[in-house]
Write a protein that binds this DNA or RNA. Sequence first.
DNA 1: CAAATATAGGTAAACGTTTACCCTTGTTTC
DNA 2: GAAACAAGGGTAAACGTTTACCTATATTTG
Lengths: 336, 336
Amino acid sequence: MATIKDVARVAGVSVASVSRVLNNGPKVSKATIEKVTRVMQELNYSPNANARALVTQKSTTLGVVIPNLVDPFFASLAQGVEQVARQKNMQLLLSTGLVSAETEMQAINLLIERRCEVMVIHSKKLSDQALIALANQVPGLVLIDRYIEAIAQRCIWLDNLEGGRIAARHFLALAHKNVACISSKYQIDDPRLRLQGFQSELLSAGVDIEPELIAYGEPTLQGGEIAVQKLLASGKSFSALFVYNDAMAIGAISALEDNGFKVPSEISVLGFDDVLLSRYSRPKLSTLNYPVEEMAIHAASIGIDLASKQPKNTANINCKYIPSLVKRESTSFNLT
Amino acid sequence: MATIKDVARVAGVSVASVSRVLNNGPKVSKATIEKVTRVMQELNYSPNANARALVTQKSTTLGVVIPNLVDPFFASLAQGVEQVARQKNMQLLLSTGLVSAETEMQAINLLIERRCEVMVIHSKKLSDQALIALANQVPGLVLIDRYIEAIAQRCIWLDNLEGGRIAARHFLALAHKNVACISSKYQIDDPRLRLQGFQSELLSAGVDIEPELIAYGEPTLQGGEIAVQKLLASGKSFSALFVYNDAMAIGAISALEDNGFKVPSEISVLGFDDVLLSRYSRPKLSTLNYPVEEMAIHAASIGIDLASKQPKNTANINCKYIPSLVKRESTSFNLT
DNA sequence: CAAATATAGGTAAACGTTTACCCTTGTTTC
DNA sequence: GAAACAAGGGTAAACGTTTACCTATATTTG
């Protein structure tokens, strides 16, 4: 593969000149630009990004660390980051397959080795401490979907507590008194906060959830189906069901209908996340929109700013997002 | 950030020795290994991958070029490639947002600049010629979901024609005689071949599709809904419907049910791709499985082999995949 | 017309590694 | 006890760029 030296030799100029036309630098005559450009095409020259990165000390690379890509939630996240990468002429380095704190750390370390200047990290396994240390080491590191007090201005997160409250208010507005809830069996912050917000808001309106009407399951379609079985097995009746995420909610609707319950006329079901699925289900799922792509774009932008020499936004940037209710077809007024 | 020289200085050895422990090279005593390792941790040393790539002339980087990530089909593709990247200790460079031959070319050129040794490309816009030229330039380049005679052993593709035939045989086996079809309005190879295989197989069984019962639309949920309207507007009746992809098929089912047709008892609907959605729809969608993740893994593996010094598999590798019928709930025996 | 100033372009150091080649020391072999 | 060899480790060139600094020519200025 042709190098800058080859181009310089053939064009009869110094490598400095070639470098200058490559970077639209000053101090090159029009004639030289043309000549060099022509030779570059002739030799099919492609500048070596690794050499460039080495000497300029910047890799023009944007890293994303997510658990996987098949979950449309994370795909949207990655897509958002990619979008700003492309716009800023940077390239995306993607790591997935994170199952433990160790693999997460490993993925991040690989990005550091590549001298990736900005990184958007979705980590649920690494400790606050570890992430704070990392953040101090990598100026362009931003956390998404996680809040850590000590590095608050580097966190882009969704207010899950408020999400739960919004869900509760929706059900209250629809006159539901007997409500049930399906949460994730993985008791990380998200499900806990959603449930907490939901419960507390209901309670302050005088509505209590019976303990038998809270079920936990895998955050998947099947998990939702199974969780509904549990709820029904309790023998308690309910007219509204708040589910941890859309996949579970769709599974829940399936199971409810299989058991002869009509959604939403007999039971209203509300999901969370507003992923693609929710628009494809029947009835179309009412849910809470998690603006993940927008948040990812925001995170990447902050990361780029932070990684630059003089970051502008030191504080007072809004890092907290509030989910919004998307009323579709799976929730309706309680007529019982 | 600490460099190899810093480590060498602090540990009181030469940079060569540090490099050797870094690479588990020979000619290092156990004592040196320990000492150097300790200093590395002390200084929080991280080897510079760009410098390494420069001197070794290999980037341990695997590139993926796809139109987008939100389409679960492409997400699966990327996931498959990522899987082998991780397993081979390489990193994923991802490019999306391809709308034209130009942007596709641009994305590939960026990968070349990074000296990405293996690339898995999903291109629908670039010409055969351009791709052949690229393939000759980049040994580790593999095409996925496309077949080009001249570089056949670098193409991993699905036999869409056979897919259409399989769909036809399924309907024939279910005794359907009045069949309809929804194709994509974008007449690239995939929809054309699927339709062609479908039609020809039906024809050889004496079943003809009336021209009014072939509709074209955007390959999306809405596109499927609209296409069904067109079919119904024709006034012709049909008992089986083969749809270009799952998203359209789910839209089609929605529209059919909205018009009072029961699926599958009155009309059978068969999709294509077997993306996540098909398992979440009601009724669960019968479809043709496109083993995209498996194919992506295969593509990445071939790419890695091709990029190595002495590729093993020169020919006789199977690059053609056949979709398989996944019978779920949206197709049934014709009782009319 | 000399001096000052632009303008274009060249030279070489630097970025952080790897690795071929060389040197030292100690051990084995006869 | 000399010769051969093995083991550990150091020196320096090379990878392909960018860029600070320098030089040479042309142009402007008084």
